[in-house]
Every structure is written in structure tokens, then in C-alpha cells.
Design a binder for these strands. Structure first.
Lengths: 151, 151
DNA sequence: CGTCAAAGTTTGCCTAGGCTACAAATCCTC
DNA sequence: GAGGATTTGTAGCCTAGGCAAACTTTGACG
């Protein structure tokens, strides 16, 4: 299978569809954005607004880092924010945030159904939620459904 | 202890307990190393040696990128390599590689047992294998065991 | 041997995402 | 409404991990 044909045995063009490592790198590019958007939505829902200071505390980074990230999200059209004011999601941003949140919830419920402790599940869910194909998420949902409400 | 009574650093439960986002960032730092080591071990097992060109093809990056990464792994004491020669794992490197490989196998088997198609499972496994706590891996193994070993 | 393609390395550039230090704006409280 | 604390933003630095281009080494083979 591998390493028989000399040269590149993985084609460059569509390797993004085929090569798992390339896929992981692509996922990483979106991961941070999704985390920010999900968190912003969450803060707005729970406290009425999303502020730099709270985002920084939740993510465990400095405020300067958040400011920079928000600038990028603005550039990408995912949030709006006026200087010294709080942050809002655009429609596009809301779409991504909601999807991310749903994935997060699915993964968390799944891990708990699997028998993982709540605290651990929270942590692991954060790590893996950005790396799951629709097929795997569907399988997780099937599993949750089958489970008889905890035990 | 550079981070202390600085500004609002963390909110509720942690002081030193793990923030999921911080944890994910830490995982990312090791992720690449683990991928390299696992792959190097695999190449040695299957072809007798690990060469830059093959690593690059597998990872979907340029050889220059691999050379740079190998330099880092050398610095960290995880591989040995002489210029223009192939790459070997140190004992420390072997330990990490084997662990990574085992995690990979567990995740892959688990996803397949869950009902995810082989091809998709391969891709997703690569994405999530670096983000799983021992507890979750154990839960996955339990699940695999319980399965009627299909076929 | 000599040559030359393949493999490996070096160099220099780019972007992302951290950080600190400092400056500026906001807002609270009196 | 002024002053000081808090919050936000700016500037500059750092590291990692990509890339392309140019150079060097290796080794296959006529």
C-alpha cells in the first residue's frame, strides 16, 4: 500500500480530503474561532453581554490576546464590535456559534453516557468537539438515544 | 508563578484546576510531536527506516517543514538523526510513540465499534486521539470489550 | 569513475496566537 | 463632575509551524 510508488504517493490536490493530518491542521484553523464564537454567545445569553475581560478569564488568556482575536473575527465578518464596547455576533457568527454549541452538547452528553465523569467529560469535550465528522456526531447521538437515561 | 493576583485571571473553580481551554492549548503543543514519533515508529516497523521524504508525504507537508520539526525533536531528546541519514527514536521517543499508537488504535476501534465507517473513523481518530484523558480512553476500551466483536 | 536526479538541508519569509508594558477610554463613587 | 480603579486597546516581542527557492549530499548506474 504505502511507499511503493516512489515520488509523492499522496496527491497534493485533494489530499485535504484524504489525508487525516491535513484535515487536523485545517480543523485547528477554525477551532479558536469556534471557541470564541460559542463563548460569546454563551456570555450574551447568560449575562447580557460579551466583554473582553470575561472572555479572557474563561479562555485563560490575557485581554490583549482577546482583543487581537476579536479583530480577526471582525475581519472575517463573524462579530461586530466598537472600541471599548461589548461584542456581538453577526448572523454568520451566530450560525457557527450555534453549531459549535450543539456539537459541544452532543459530545458532552455522549461522554457522560459512555460513563465518563462530568468534570473529565467537560474537559475532553472541549478538546475533541472540533474534530468530529457529521457521521461520528450522528453515531454519538444514536448512542445517547439508545441509553436509558443514566444508571 | 508569574500569574497570580494580576487581573481577573480565572473565575470560579480553578486557581490551579484545569481550564479546558488551557488544557487544549497544552495538548496542541504535544500533538505534532506525537504524530511525528508515531509515524517514525510506524515507518521503521514497516519499511526499515524513517526518511524525511516519506514523513513529509504522509503528513502532507514539505520536506523543509519536516527537517525543521526533526530538529526540534532532536533538541527535545526524542529522536536522533545525522544529516542526510534516516531518523531514529530515542527510548523516550519510543515510549511516547508507543503510547500514541496505542491511543490511536483504541480510538479507531472504538469509533468503528460505535458504528462509524472505517474511512471516517481513521480521519476522526487522528483529530481526537491527542485530547483524551485516561478516563475516557478507559471508557472506550470498556465499550469495545462489551461489544460482541462483530463478525 | 562521472554524472545527475532524488533526497535532504538551509535560508528567509509569512501568519497565528501567545505574552508584557504601557496608553487610553470608560464608569463608579463621591 | 472629578478622580481613580477598571477595562480596553496598542505596540512590540517571541515561538511554532507552514511555505518556496536555492543549495548540498547521496547514491544509482552507464
Amino acid at each position: 500500500m504505502p511507499l511503493q510508488e516512489k515520488d509523492t504517493y499522496q496527491e497534493k490536490d485533494d489530499s485535504s480530503r484524504i489525508n487525516p493530518f491535513v484535515r487536523v491542521r485545517e480543523d485547528h484553523a477554525n477551532e479558536l474561532s469556534e471557541d470564541y464564537l460559542e463563548l460569546i454567545e454563551d456570555l450574551i445569553d447568560r449575562t447580557g453581554e460579551a466583554r473582553t475581560v470575561d472572555i479572557a478569564a474563561k479562555l485563560g488568556v490575557r485581554q490583549a490576546t482577546v482583543t487581537k482575536a476579536i479583530a480577526r473575527l471582525k475581519r472575517e465578518g463573524l462579530v461586530t464590535a466598537a472600541p471599548y464596547r461589548s461584542i456581538f455576533l453577526t448572523n454568520e457568527g451566530k450560525k457557527i456559534a450555534s453549531r459549535a454549541r450543539e456539537h459541544h452538547r452532543t459530545v458532552l452528553e455522549f461522554l457522560i453516557a459512555l460513563g465518563v465523569q462530568q468534570e473529565v467529560a467537560e474537559i475532553d469535550a472541549e478538546g475533541i468537539e472540533h474534530h468530529l465528522s457529521p457521521a461520528t456526531l450522528a453515531a454519538m447521538q444514536r448512542f445517547i438515544q439508545q441509553q436509558p437515561a443514566a444508571a
